[in-house]
């Protein structure tokens, strides 16, 4: 079973071999509301853990999506660039943002597992 981890900024990261798929959580899409635009990095570029990797704009405002881990961008989800509402509809599936080739697969160990993330969200009220 692939490793699934979460950040306090409400991104998720799913490890598949040495590649990690990244997106935003259901809680994040609910807080944002209707998503109207996403800006994705160029494949081949690098993302750094904790730094901006993508931008997501709701009807109200723009927000950053931070990279949970460092690595090289191997693919981005062009489907959500054309139809950003997919992020609202299926944030953990069709609404993924990007995949990266990890510098260090152990980097996920520092992130929250699903139970810890759900507890973290519950604390947000």
């Amino acid at each position: 079973m692939p490793t699934l981890r979460f950040t306090k900024d409400h991104e998720w990261v799913r490890l598949d071999g040495d590649t990690a798929v990244i997106g935003i959580t259901d809680y994040a899409q609910q807080q944002l509301g209707d998503i109207v635009y996403v800006e994705l990095p160029e494949p081949g570029s690098r993302v750094e853990a904790g730094k901006e990797a993508a931008v997501v704009e709701s009807a109200k405002a723009a927000s950053e999506v931070y990279a949970p881990v460092s690595g090289e961008v191997v693919a981005v989800n062009e489907l959500i660039a054309g139809d950003p509402a997919k992020v609202n509809a299926d944030p953990m599936g069709d609404g993924w943002f990007l995949s990266v080739k990890l510098d260090d697969p152990k980097a996920l160990d520092a992130l929250m597992d699903e139970a810890a993330y759900q507890a973290f969200v519950a604390e947000q009220g």
Partner: peptide
């Protein structure tokens, strides 16, 4: 109220 559960676009 900034929005209801239906959302801004709807």
């Amino acid at each position: 109220p900034v929005q209801y559960p239906t959302g801004i676009i709807s």
